[in-house]
């Protein structure tokens, strides 16, 4: 019973792996094509190296797709990260980076730090915890900001 379940899981894992490799291989080929369209060289040797690389990337991408299509996939690492958590992480990070030019380093970092820390508390969320997270974020970001802007003289946005 256990062996059957394990082999089913292994088959599913390989199927998902093949699918990911197929998509990944095609994306590499598409990226190479998008770069190829951008080619606009004016000097003699500027294109030698990148052209070779773009052709190699397209060929390797297609090769990965073909090997995945025929089920010859190798799964190097199984993360098993929860999809909802993944989406939360990516959205938080992208919002943070997008807000940086608008809100500046200090506000963006404090908000990102506090929101992330609070969300990572999960079900153990509380008002007291929120206050602590906000306080920690202000102290941490404030210290970093002062260190760089006042001591190291690096002006942050």
């Amino acid at each position: 019973m256990g062996t059957a379940w394990e082999s089913t899981m292994e088959a599913n894992r390989r199927r998902i792996g093949s699918y990911l490799d197929l998509v990944g291989g095609l994306l590499f080929a598409a990226f190479a094509a998008a770069m190829w369209v951008q080619r606009d060289y004016t000097s003699e040797y500027s294109g030698y190296f990148p052209d070779f690389l773009l052709i190699a990337m397209a060929v390797l991408g297609v090769g990965l797709g073909i090997s995945a299509w025929f089920g010859r996939t190798v799964r190097a690492d199984e993360h098993g990260d929860p999809l909802s958590g993944l989406l939360r992480a990516v959205v938080l990070l992208l919002l943070c980076f997008a807000a940086l030019p608008v809100l500046g380093y200090v506000i963006t970092s404090i908000v990102f730090f506090a929101v992330t820390a609070t969300l990572m508390r999960g079900k153990s969320w509380s008002l007291k915890g929120l206050v602590v997270d906000v306080a920690v974020s202000i102290v941490f970001v404030g210290a970093i900001y002062l260190l760089f802007s006042e001591v190291l003289l690096v002006q942050l946005p």
Binding site: H79, D81, P82, G85, L86, A89, L93, M120
Partner: peptide, 8 residues
Amino acid sequence: VIRLIANR
């Protein structure tokens, strides 16, 4: 970091 946030 993505993995840390995703897995809490």
